[in-house]
Amino acid sequence: MAQSLLIRAARPVGFPDHADDRPIDLRIEDGRVTAAGQGIDAPTGAEVIDARGAWISPGWADLHAHVYHGGTDISIRPSQGGLAHGVTTIVDAGSSGEGNFVGFREFIAEPAAERVVAFLNIGSIGLVACNRVSELIDQRSIDITRTLAVIEANRDIIRGIKCRACSTVTGAWGITPVKIAKKVAKIAKLPLMVHVGEPPPLLEEVLEILTPGDVLTHCFHGKPGGNILEDEELFGIARQVAAAGVRLDVGHGGASFSFKVARAGIERGLFPFSISTDLHLRSIDGPVWDMATTMSKLLAVGMPFAEVVAAASTRPRSVIGLPSEGRLAAGAEADFTIFELEDASVTLPDSSGDSATLDRLFAPRHAILGTRSVKAARLFDPTVHG
């Protein structure tokens, strides 16, 4: 762990109150910023990171991943998608429900080197046996009283409610679980994240329930009957709710991202609010791999560089209550990702059976969180998979 650190000549990007992208030096002591500018001296014995040619942003934050390793059959360890790959903050999106959250807190969130928080699943059992045993079979799957009690006892870690709304999960129960989840979110004064996919319920039904601050994840999935480009009326509704403040999240995953849908949506001005991986055991070896590769895919379909960085750092951080302003000011907690943008020519799959050729790849180099300074790299290796 680095008690003193000097980052030399990194180009800032993604800081809402620092628009100047000229290289700066950044001094960090005991996990906090002590100086930012040019020509800053390194403290005696400090670790020095030469970041010439690289960018520095607020720490990347993955708004949708599954890291309840051992508690569900799909979850990875936080370290597999975290600091070693440029991500300082991970939001576990519904792996645990009220019935097993205590294990998530004690054995995952608290020991992790990364900052790990959660959206609590409205289903009491969470994703114990994901897509084999639904967490939302019928009304017995939800206990509102216990869910609210768990939220109150763990508000430092629980930052929202998660509900999966697709036929493979809710079956004939349809839209009802989303309505219950929204009621719980309103009582708890937390945002609601809804997973969408194969209907029922219809995406239109879900969008009627969401309000500003809520999150629609898998916004660019390509599944029939529920993707935003299938009819003009639905696309118009999606644009309206996004403009009103509903946050569209990528949530790539093993089955929930389409290059065609993303490219068409972005060409028509519908950008995602946040870029997340939906990283789990069934997506980490492809088609997702890591946050940097997911960011690279959004860059390839037309999302501007600065928008991609904001969607992977500042914006997801805002969803879970992390400050965006003053990150380079003296006294701020050190929370940064240093990365490069590499030229490439690699063809990658989405999760719908299509592929695209990427000519630039995000490449994390260091992740800094408090006193931790970790050398980082992509999990995806273009020399192997390209």
Score class of each variant (00 low, 15 high):
residue 239 R to Y: 00
residue 351 S to P: 09
residue 159 R to V: 01
residue 42 A to R: 08
residue 12 P to L: 12
residue 339 F to Q: 05
residue 100 N to W: 11
residue 250 V to M: 03
residue 367 A to P: 04
residue 314 T to S: 05
residue 374 V to E: 07
residue 186 K to C: 01
residue 176 T to D: 14
residue 209 I to Y: 03
residue 224 P to H: 10
residue 198 E to Q: 15
residue 377 A to M: 00
residue 296 S to D: 13
residue 268 R to S: 11
residue 347 T to W: 00
residue 190 L to A: 09
residue 358 L to Y: 00
residue 311 A to S: 14
residue 384 V to H: 10
residue 371 T to S: 15
residue 127 L to D: 01
residue 377 A to S: 10
residue 264 A to S: 14
residue 257 F to D: 01
residue 33 V to M: 07
residue 384 V to Q: 11
residue 224 P to R: 14
residue 170 T to E: 00
residue 124 S to G: 00
residue 128 V to Q: 12
residue 105 R to Q: 08
residue 303 M to P: 07
residue 71 G to V: 09
residue 93 A to S: 13
residue 42 A to L: 11
residue 249 D to V: 09
residue 325 E to L: 13
residue 232 E to M: 13
residue 241 V to E: 02
residue 136 L to S: 10
residue 383 T to I: 12
residue 289 W to G: 01
residue 104 F to L: 12
residue 195 H to E: 07
residue 75 S to I: 09
residue 84 A to Y: 04
residue 136 L to D: 06
residue 372 R to Y: 02
residue 337 T to N: 09
residue 344 A to N: 01
residue 200 P to S: 04
residue 124 S to R: 15
residue 207 L to H: 11
residue 111 P to R: 09
residue 356 A to S: 10
residue 123 G to V: 10
residue 90 I to W: 01
residue 370 G to F: 00
residue 381 D to N: 14
residue 122 I to P: 02
residue 206 V to Y: 07
residue 216 L to S: 11
residue 81 G to H: 03
residue 212 P to Q: 12
residue 48 V to D: 05
residue 219 C to P: 05
residue 192 L to Q: 08
residue 31 G to W: 14
residue 296 S to P: 13
residue 380 F to T: 04
residue 270 L to V: 02
residue 152 E to M: 07
residue 206 V to Q: 08
residue 329 A to N: 13
residue 199 P to I: 14
residue 108 I to D: 06
residue 177 P to T: 15
residue 281 L to Y: 08
residue 3 Q to P: 10
residue 163 C to P: 05
residue 243 A to C: 04
residue 364 P to W: 00
residue 108 I to M: 05
residue 175 I to V: 12
residue 34 T to N: 03
residue 46 A to D: 11
residue 375 K to P: 06
residue 311 A to D: 08
residue 145 T to Y: 04
residue 99 G to M: 07
residue 206 V to I: 15
residue 262 A to N: 04
residue 92 D to T: 11
residue 85 H to W: 05
residue 290 D to M: 08
residue 130 C to E: 15
residue 37 G to F: 10
residue 91 V to D: 02
residue 19 A to T: 05
residue 381 D to G: 01
residue 220 F to P: 11
residue 379 L to W: 14
residue 281 L to R: 15
residue 92 D to L: 06
residue 180 I to P: 04
residue 160 G to T: 15
residue 236 G to R: 14
residue 189 K to V: 09
residue 86 G to F: 02
residue 141 S to W: 10
residue 285 D to K: 12
residue 177 P to V: 13
residue 37 G to W: 08
residue 325 E to V: 08
residue 106 E to I: 03
residue 101 F to I: 03
residue 355 S to T: 15
residue 319 V to N: 03
residue 313 S to M: 09
residue 326 G to M: 08
residue 109 A to R: 03
residue 226 G to P: 10
residue 345 S to M: 09
residue 324 S to G: 14
residue 228 I to S: 01
residue 367 A to D: 02
residue 363 A to D: 07
